[in-house]
Nucleic acid binder design. Structure first.
Lengths: 216, 216, 216, 216
DNA sequence: CATGAATGAGCCTTCATTCAT
DNA sequence: CATGAATGAAGGCTCATTCAT
């Protein structure tokens, strides 16, 4: 039964992590199965196979539980988005990558995001944070890409934030349609659709060495 | 104080209508002031100046109260959208009109729609209905306009439902940004932005050389 | 089934009063049977024979329930004390009356006051109010009587507030001993004891004439 | 690092004592800072810098923790009271000493006693024990002094237990007033007041057409 | 012995809904 | 129909206590 203190601590951390992971999974599962408004800590506890009180050793309260779970799921999306933003490729490629990322990511997490997208809001803090902070940070990042494209003469000088939001929501729009119709795969096709519309819509034709179109 | 039975009944109907109208207004006001999650029948009753029980003589339950109120507010939007759909103008004009309609309508009801757009969800039935039925019926109508434009050679032959959804959400996207930043007025500018991007994006350039297809 | 509106309202008020009275009685009973810390709204509801939710149509919360109940019980005591204070009798008679009042009052409500006196405090607001406001208002009133007696040359010019508090607590002291030993009746005797000590002192004057028995 | 078994055990005892002392201090501190009703084992553990479980190796439960802490604080008071009781001085001197002891002791521990006196109760067992056992043992001891005084002809033959309780509570009464008004020092004055009243009474002998007694 | 994550009974409170008047 | 007191299921959260390590 001898074990170094370090090993003990380490093992404890792993056990904790396991429980915590179970709980976060349970939060996500409950969110998926019950929707935002059917979400209760009781159900989470049952789903996680732990006592109700245990949830409160991991989260301050219900809102934080949702928040943390959201974050843990959205985290990879943010990381990949950041990778795109800071990569050394042309802005239009970045947007295409973002579009593809949207489709794969939401495809991978479709059940949860059906809830998030359809059930937006409800709780106090989460709502604010998700929408105000997370969504707008996405918009901001995309806007930067757009502005980069404008500087390079690829895109027309349009209001970046609005274009960014339009692009994000147009992508989500198609994602939602995929979700609603339970469509999987064929991502490339939908990416082409969205980016096609936007690149023609925001593209600078002069730069494309083509004849002039309808400039607004 | 004599009054014919008919008159009595008639008066009753009017009074009922008045009460019903008051209640619906109260529901909307409560939704605005308290948000979806702060919405309680108590508050509605207080706001309407009636007893709590009275609400249940007008609506089966809370969900129906919200539902009916939503409908009563969205009704004019639907009517105007239908007018646009059935009007005898080119498809691109119809879309421009829809875009303008979005902005004016949400501007007029910004307080309520801030709640609906940000607080989407909460109650079971309303959520489903709002999104599944109302939203998709909008998408369908817009899709018909697109298809009309495709048939007339104005638009590229793209998947109509997806394009319709993209257009709706792109408009909402800018609407939400207006709501978030508390921007009013300058509707024309935003209409031009959205329609500009979409017309260039979905416009059939071959056809553009024939007609002057740039609608604002 | 005809009944004037006034009668209806009146009857309703009475019914309400009955329920309210029942609940207040139940609060007091629960306080008595369970003590401050065993006091729960569940138990009150059960004792009152109403649903838990009903309690909250009468009181904002647990603290208010306790507070209101306390007040309703102490009210007659306060009224009688005020009657004594404002009556047109010599200060010493007033104090004697107060002493008698203490004994009869606490005798009448001995079960509840066993809780209050032994279980002082516990809840947030109630504690503060009971002690800080109710107790000190009593002290103040008694102090006024003492000062009156000082002005009339009956009492020595001692710090009124302290003397008042001492007198109140000395009375309570004996009350508590009665409660602890489950003694009833013989009030006159205890009144004489307390007032006797206070009015006259406990020193044996015969003995005092021999030695100078004033110890400090 | 060699050490005899005895030394090890001894050291352990000391360490234990240190921990126990820390915990008791933490209980007292928590009582002071949070009041009876804000008192939780969590807070004690944090204050003591030990794990929550550790508390249960020192005390059977929460009640015992409070109980033991109270005892450890009241212990010196009891010892000093016993010293007074068994000392070879006149009864009246003993009472004066007791009065002075009350004031100094509660002055020294005013923070904790503010909680005990104002927050009396809360926990089941502690309450009972504190009041029933500790308080009454004090009363008994004081009563013995009174009876001694009666036998010696210093005091009138009044019911000793009641007089003792009155004296204790009259002293506490002034102590509480000091606590409430955050008064420190001037102990002698208050001792004289209380003992003066008790020894001499509050009646004005001049007014009673008698010679002057002991004026303070 | 110490630890502290886990426990789960239990508490307070809310609120949609009902129903006797 | 209107009323609003009563209902009671349900929810979020606390905390004394336990026990495997």
């Amino acid at each position: 039964m001898l074990m170094s203190v370090n090993k003990k601590i380490e093992r404890k951390k792993i056990l904790d992590a396991v429980t915590r992971k179970d709980i976060i999974d349970a939060v996500a599962a409950t969110l998926i199965n019950e929707g935002m408004q059917g979400f209760t800590m009781d159900k989470v506890a049952t789903a996680a196979g732990v006592a109700k009180g245990t949830l409160y050793t991991h989260f301050k309260n219900k809102d934080e539980a949702i928040e943390v779970t959201m974050d843990s799921i959205v985290e990879p999306l943010i990381e990949q988005l950041d990778a795109i933003v800071t990569s050394n490729i042309p802005p239009s490629h970045k947007l295409t990558r973002y579009s593809a990322l949207s489709f794969t990511f939401f495809d991978d997490n479709r059940d949860l995001f059906r809830v998030i997208l359809y059930d937006r809001g409800q709780a106090h803090a989460p709502k604010q944070r998700f929408h105000d902070s997370r969504y707008w940070s996405f918009v901001q990042k995309l806007a930067n890409i757009f502005e980069e494209g404008v500087r390079e003469g690829d895109f027309l000088p349009l209001p970046a934030l609005k274009i960014a939001a339009m692009f994000i929501d147009a992508n989500l729009s198609v994602v939602m349609q995929r979700l609603a119709n339970k469509i999987t795969g064929n991502i490339q096709e939908d990416v082409s659709l969205v980016t096609g519309v936007f690149f023609r819509g925001i593209g600078n034709r002069d730069n494309e060495s083509k004849k002039s179109g309808c400039e607004n």
